[in-house]
C-alpha cells in the first residue's frame, strides 16, 4: 500500500507543480489590480471580469455593455468549431481506411499520419504561410498555367487560419477515431445487413454509436486547443484578427494588464471545463 502511494508521487508532484499551481496563480492574479508597468498590485479587484462585458467610461465611470470581447470569444469558438468539423470530415474516412488495411500495413499508414508532426508546429505554420501567400508556389503555379491573372488571397485571412488549425490538429482526430474503428467488430455490420438494414441505416444505427467515444475524444482534442490557439491566427492571419489566445498574449505584452489576461485565461479554462463536464455527463448517462 505504502509503495503504491510512493509510485504515484512523481505524477502527483508534477501535476501539483505544473498544473495546479499555475492555475491557482492565474486565478489569483485575475482578481488583483494591474500595476502600471505590468505585474500586479496586491489589491483585490473584480475589474478584469467587469471589463469583459462592460466598458467603463473614462470620465464618469459609468458602465456600458461592450461586445468586443464576446465577439473575440465567439470568433474563437466558431473557428475551432469549423476546424473540428473539417477534421472530422477528413479524419473519419482516413481513420476508416487505415483501420481496414491488413495488419502489416496499419503501422506504416499510422506513421505516415504522424510524419508532418515530427517538425515543430511553428516551422510548419510558417511553411504553410510561405505556400499560401501571393509569391508562394500555389499562386505561382496557377498563374503560370494561366488559370488566374492576379494572385489569389489565400494567406492572411480566416481561410488561412482555419487551414492552419486543421493541419495542426488533424492527427488528434484521426488517432482516436482509428482506435475506435480498429476495435469495431465488423460482424456486427454483417448482422445489420442480414436484418435488412441499408448502408445508411447500418452506419447510423450500428457504426456511429460504437464510434462515439472516439468521436468525442477526437472532437475535444481538436476543439479545445483550437479555441486557445495562438500561432495560426498570429502567423497565418497576418495579425489582422484576434482570437482568444492572441488577446491573452496582448494583455501580458503591450497592454500591460496582467489581471485581465489572467481573467481571460480563467474564463477560457472554465468554458473548457464546462464543455468537458457536459460531454462526460451525457456520455455517462448514455452508457448507463
Amino acid at each position: 500500500m505504502k509503495l503504491h502511494r510512493l509510485l504515484l508521487a512523481p505524477s502527483l508532484g508534477t501535476i501539483l507543480i505544473f498544473m495546479v499551481l499555475p492555475i491557482a496563480i492565474t486565478t489569483l492574479y485575475s482578481v488583483l489590480t494591474p500595476a502600471q508597468y505590468g505585474g500586479v498590485i496586491w489589491k483585490p479587484s473584480a475589474e478584469a471580469y467587469i471589463r469583459l462585458l462592460f466598458e467603463r467610461d473614462i470620465f464618469d465611470d459609468t458602465l456600458t455593455f461592450n461586445t468586443d470581447y464576446l465577439q473575440i470569444l465567439g470568433r474563437s469558438v466558431l473557428q475551432a468549431g469549423v476546424a473540428t468539423l473539417l477534421c472530422l470530415i477528413i479524419g473519419l474516412p482516413t481513420a476508416w481506411f487505415i483501420a481496414t488495411r491488413p495488419p502489416g500495413q496499419k503501422s506504416l499508414w499510422l506513421m505516415l499520419v504522424t510524419v508532418p508532426y515530427w517538425v515543430n508546429l511553428l516551422v510548419r505554420t510558417i511553411a504553410l504561410l510561405l505556400i499560401l501567400r501571393d509569391e508562394g508556389p500555389i499562386n505561382r503555379a496557377l498563374q503560370s498555367v494561366g488559370l488566374i491573372d492576379g494572385p489569389l488571397s489565400l494567406a492572411y485571412n480566416n481561410f488561412a487560419i482555419g487551414l492552419g488549425l486543421v493541419s495542426s490538429f488533424l492527427p488528434f482526430m484521426i488517432l482516436p477515431l482509428y482506435a475506435a474503428i480498429e476495435r469495431f467488430d465488423f460482424s456486427l455490420l454483417e448482422a445489420a445487413y442480414d436484418l435488412h438494414a441499408n448502408r445508411r441505416k447500418a452506419f447510423f444505427a450500428v457504426v456511429l454509436p460504437i464510434l462515439r467515444p472516439g468521436l468525442i475524444a477526437g472532437g475535444l482534442l481538436v476543439f479545445i486547443p483550437g479555441i486557445g490557439s495562438y500561432l495560426a491566427p498570429d502567423i497565418l492571419g497576418g495579425g489582422k484578427t484576434l482570437m482568444l489566445g492572441n488577446l491573452i498574449g496582448m494583455q501580458f505584452q503591450g497592454s500591460r494588464n496582467w489581471p485581465f489576461g489572467a481573467a481571460l485565461s480563467t474564463i477560457l479554462m472554465a468554458v473548457t471545463l464546462i464543455a468537458l463536464f457536459i460531454v462526460a455527463r451525457r456520455a455517462a448517462r448514455e452508457d448507463a
Binding site: Y37, I58, D68, Y69, N246, M250, G254, S255, R256
Partner: peptide, 20 residues
Amino acid sequence: PTCSPEATALIDKVWTKLMN
C-alpha cells in the same frame, strides 16, 4: 516615453477594436 495608464487603456481599446 511610456504612456500613462489612461492613454495605454485607450491604445489597447483602439487595437482591440481594430483587430475585431
